[in-house]
Nucleic acid binder design. Structure first.
Lengths: 222, 222
DNA sequence: TGAGTTCGGTCGTCCAGCCGACAATACAGA
DNA sequence: TCTGTATTGTCGGCTGGACGACCGAACTCA
């Protein structure tokens, strides 16, 4: 991939908007780009230097394989998200990112390069700090959801959050393109496949939502 | 409190170690110090500008009151920790910090002052960013503990972490000064008072630990 | 177009741990 | 020293939701 393309990719990321175009160009030199199609795996390289990743386009899921060989979805990464740095747990586990949409593009920096960038660019540093704060808050709310809410509530909050991020809303409903299996959703809300299926049908019955394999439609109820 | 005292207080905080003494002095001007005794409450002021807090000395617990009036301990803040910025959930809940030890000293900055500091001081910014990353990791590990481990395991990890931070170790045991009630521990590991009591006695029986109201002694077992 | 694989639907069983209730103890303040 | 309050100890009942099992439906790939 040539520098020009890189330049345009980085340019419209919120995080880099504080940089001048010459600063941005010099950053392009040290970026690494990767593209992937649905189902492909983007590896975190544990061996070499740690890297910071920016998802430019598409959607990823961070999965981990537990001792029984089950795939646990730990997080969803969407366009614009930063990942890799802290997603890595101390115990070097079998954790990696899988593309769930086509045309995934992400770029990465070596951790130390990135740190240097932050140091040279206070603006960028602040921007990054705020970003992290935001993510911290989200994790915290996930945590307290898990602590205090039952599965039913977690399921609904999950759908609502999802809808607010990716849904296309009409007058009285929000439509979501569904690229997750019940299994995926289950591990995201920390439950089981069967329970998720049950909840889908329960809510469908109540008229709160409708769904097929490819779509989820949330009815807006006042 | 005079500037000199402030200066010495800030000086040996890890975060500020990257600053020169003149930089540090100028920061002293904008800090606010508070002291508290056991049981006293340090309020987060929701109304005025958000503040960032640094705990200089002592221990705090962040508690929240739920709808039934129960006190839920959300976090423990120890000497050197930063708090306030993200502990605040979006829903302005009844959340505040309570001193659990005597001689608590903490200082705070207005959020915008702090941001300016970070911007002016890339070194400090980077230092702060790393700090946050560390906290993020901890929260993440708490989260996956809650997801995948049973109460028994969470209880033990909690004790182990506590011991590693505050315990005084001897040849074959670690002693902890216990300032938490079973109730407190329960909400920290997301369980109930009764279960915590049970676990304490179960492990005591097994000879893994010993405890009284004021002390917890963890036996080191190879 | 058919065989293999993954995903969704449903049921019955089972248990960790929550919850209420109450007793025993420790502790603090007068 | 006495009394009220906070903490700890213990028990049984109860239940949310995990888990295994099994089947049909949908998707995929040759």
């Amino acid at each position: 991939m040539n520098l020009d393309t890189k330049y345009w990719y980085l340019r419209d990321h919120k995080l880099f908007s504080v940089l001048s175009s010459s600063e941005l160009k010099s950053i392009c030199m040290i970026t690494n780009f990767k593209t992937a199609r649905k189902g492909e795996i983007i590896l975190f390289s544990h061996d070499e230097n740690t890297r910071v990743y920016f998802l430019k386009k598409g959607t990823l899921k961070i999965v981990e394989i537990d001792e029984k060989g089950n795939e646990i979805v730990k997080d969803l990464i969407q366009k614009g998200d930063i990942f890799g740095e802290f997603t890595l747990t101390e115990t070097q586990s079998d954790e990696y990112a899988v593309a769930v949409s086509d045309n995934v593009i992400c770029c990465s920096f070596r951790m130390d390069d990135f740190e240097q960038m932050l140091e040279k660019n206070p603006q960028l540093g602040l921007s990054y700090t705020k970003w992290m704060g935001f993510r911290f808050k989200r994790l915290q709310s996930k945590y307290s959801n898990l602590m205090f809410k039952d599965v039913r509530t977690r399921f609904m909050s999950f759908l609502e959050e999802w809808a607010s991020k990716e849904g296309t809303a009409s007058a009285d409903e929000v439509t979501l393109k569904n690229y997750l299996t019940h299994q995926d959703i289950a591990s995201l809300i920390c439950s089981t496949r069967q329970t998720v299926t049950q909840l889908f049908n329960e809510f469908k019955e109540k008229g709160i939502l409708d769904y097929s394999r490819t779509e989820i439609i949330l009815k807006k109820t006042a």
